[in-house]
């Protein structure tokens, strides 16, 4: 219905560039999708072979699942709505949003394929650092002294008497293998270890919003996308 305005029409692609009246295949195509598409879009072919990719080369998807060769994308809405057809878990709306998720998935992801995991344009934390300041803890020098009992968690403390009392018995052995670099590694390796629900959440982070003595405090508490 919309061939005239599509990219192929404007690029002067003719019907016979893809179809042959003598071809016996589906829709009289000269080759099948994606091989036919790759004959012009070599870079997309290369990306489909990157470590992180949609299952096109495995035969589980085709270019035509997202692109209409006679028009544009297979959606009449925003480009992100095309992604949400399969990745509906990110449809929201969420109580606590992450701005680029609501704007355009391609701000962080390249759907054609990437070297980084999860079709991310960059590896963590560098992708996140393009829009966010690094955690100030990364500048901290860590302790290196060994000890038998250095950590505890609620699982261990729940049975303590009185409840919640930490002792050597209910603590967790902890070896600080990274020494001085412990803080840098912990806070500078992967942001989504703590901010694990970066696509949005309905549950508040553990930090409460507060009001400081200057009237400002931390009004954004709860929006950390950690839960």
């Amino acid at each position: 219905m919309d061939w005239t305005h599509g990219e192929h029409a404007l690029a002067d692609v003719a019907c016979t560039d893809c179809h042959s009246v003598h071809a016996g295949g589906k829709m009289s195509l000269k080759q099948q999708d994606p091989d036919l598409c790759y004959s012009c879009h070599q870079e997309q072919q290369a990306k489909a072979n990157f470590p992180s990719h949609h299952p096109i080369k495995e035969g589980k998807m085709t270019c035509g699942d997202c692109h209409n060769p006679h028009g544009e994308l297979e959606t009449e809405e925003l480009a992100r709505d095309l992604c949400l057809e399969c990745h509906s878990r990110y449809q929201g709306p969420f109580v606590f949003e992450h701005a680029p998720v609501e704007e355009d998935c391609s701000i962080c992801h390249d759907p054609h394929g990437t070297v980084s995991n999860n079709l991310l344009k960059q590896t963590e934390p560098f992708l996140c650092l393009q829009c966010h300041e690094s955690h100030f803890h990364t500048m901290r020098s860590g302790g290196t002294t060994a000890s038998d009992v250095l950590a505890f968690d609620a699982n261990a403390l729940n049975g303590a008497t009185p409840a919640g009392t930490p002792t050597a018995a209910n603590g967790i052995p902890f070896t600080n293998a990274h020494g001085d670099d412990g803080w840098r590694q912990a806070f500078g390796t992967k942001c989504t270890v703590c901010h694990s629900v970066v696509h949005g959440s309905d549950l508040p982070s553990q930090t409460s919003p507060t009001i400081g003595n200057n009237g400002e405090g931390f009004p954004d508490g709860g929006k950390g996308l950690t839960r």
């Binding site: 302790g143 002294t145 600080n176 990274h178 412990g182 590694q185």
Partner: peptide
Amino acid sequence: NYLDAAVPP
């Protein structure tokens, strides 16, 4: 296994 950080003595 990169999540080990401690406060120095």
